[in-house]
Amino acid sequence: MSGLDFEISQRPDFALVSVQMQPGQVVYSEPAAMASMTPSLTMKAGLKGGWKKALGRVFAGESMIVNTFTAENGPGEITFAPGTPGDVMHYRLDGNSIYLQRGAFLIHSEGIELSAKWGGAKGFFSGNGLVLLKAEGTGDLFFNSYGAILEVDVTDDYVVDTGYIVAFEDTLDYKVVVLPGSRPSKTIKNFLFGGEGLVCRFSGQGKVWIQTRYVHPLLAWVYPFRPTKSND
């Protein structure tokens, strides 16, 4: 299967993916990710993979709806932009799988399946949303970060704050733990509600992608300024 003809521009702060689509080619995206497209392309919104998979995506912090773009009437160009300022990473899946943090999925080509990965107890206790999205199959996958992306080659052990993980390869073992040194009283709170001190300990061999900004502090800063509906 030939890969997508793509280009990522405006890196690393406001990355944009443009794809040159051949007739009949298909691209799947997170809703609202499409920025522009030529009229030869058609868009269809739907619950890709049935309602179970769609529901799974919701638990993994993604949208239930996946938009399908098809080059039905000849070749065309389409561009995608993530919702947060940051970088976009391309990853070629070759029969293996990769795990994405909530909100990190942007687009993928044909041949890739997305499913929510219930991390068992380790996923459950992290309020930070370490319910992961698993992408598997053969094809092109694009994921986005908040801030720039660092690619880390893990060869033994590596610790990342759960809020900074973007994605990691399937060959890595992961465990959500409390950062040693946190006070016990804080530990319980962290386990239940997430927050600082909750880290993911990776072991084995593989790649981890880390974002250089954490989105929660920004949200906390913006929150008081949000428009609210008044009742009078």
């Binding site: 799988s97 390869e169 399937d170 060959t171 073992d173 084995g204």
Partner: peptide
């Protein structure tokens, strides 16, 4: 030999 990976079932 080792066993691990994200799934916990991968043999290395």
């Amino acid at each position: 030999l080792d066993v691990g990976g994200a799934s916990g079932r991968m043999v290395f």
